[in-house]
């Protein structure tokens, strides 16, 4: 883009932004769900924001020697030391050598971190647009960040992680 186009874009953004204050407040929207569009093991997934405590990036993860393969190590976030697991392994995907700088912290009582490759977007979709939302335990998927993404069930992930922590054989699953 040329500087003039960039300047016009900035001015347009400014006008559009300022116009939101002049315009009447929009009517309250219906129920909707927020998702993070993430890339795990080279594949697109969606993570429900409602189940998350934080999203972090570039946290230092200290590896624990002799630990379970899923456990990448320990990280410090907001005054808590949390175990960090490889989300691709937890999801049953093959291990990839790429860096996993992103971290989602979930679990209010027993927080743990899930590391993945890339955060590709944040999206809010009407609940009606979430596929499989009608049935309680069915796999869900959403259109987010340019494609249909399976929604990671954090409750299932938490169960799998807990089974690993308690020494049972991991069953995996999303």
């Amino acid at each position: 883009m040329t500087p003039a186009q960039l300047g016009a874009a900035a001015a347009g953004m400014r006008r559009a932004f300022d116009q939101t204050f002049a315009a009447p407040e929009p009517p309250p929207a219906g129920e909707s769900d927020d998702f993070l569009a993430v890339r795990v093991g080279g594949r697109p997934f969606a993570v429900p924001v409602l189940d998350l405590a934080r999203v972090e990036s570039r946290r230092k993860v200290v590896a624990l020697p002799g630990s379970h393969p899923w456990l990448l190590g320990l990280a410090s976030t907001q005054g808590h030391v949390v175990p960090v697991f490889s989300l691709e392994l937890v999801l049953g995907l093959p291990a990839t050598p790429v860096a996993k700088p992103w971290l989602v912290v979930c679990g209010r009582d027993e927080p743990f971190g899930l590391a993945f490759e890339a955060l590709e977007g944040y999206t809010r979709v009407p609940r009606a647009a979430v596929l499989g939302a009608a049935e309680p335990d069915a796999p869900r998927a959403v259109h987010a960040a340019g494609g249909l993404r399976p929604v990671v069930s954090l409750s299932a992930v938490a169960a799998a992680v807990r089974s690993v922590v308690s020494g049972r054989k991991p069953s995996g699953g999303s």
Binding site: P3, L6, G7, A10, M13, R14, F17
Partner: peptide
């Protein structure tokens, strides 16, 4: 020079975003 002007334009956008 053109690139730096472009960067200036991008800075306008970034500045606008930071202000917003």
């Amino acid at each position: 020079g053109r690139k730096s002007q472009q960067v200036g334009g991008i800075l306008d956008v970034i500045n606008e975003l930071s202000e917003q």
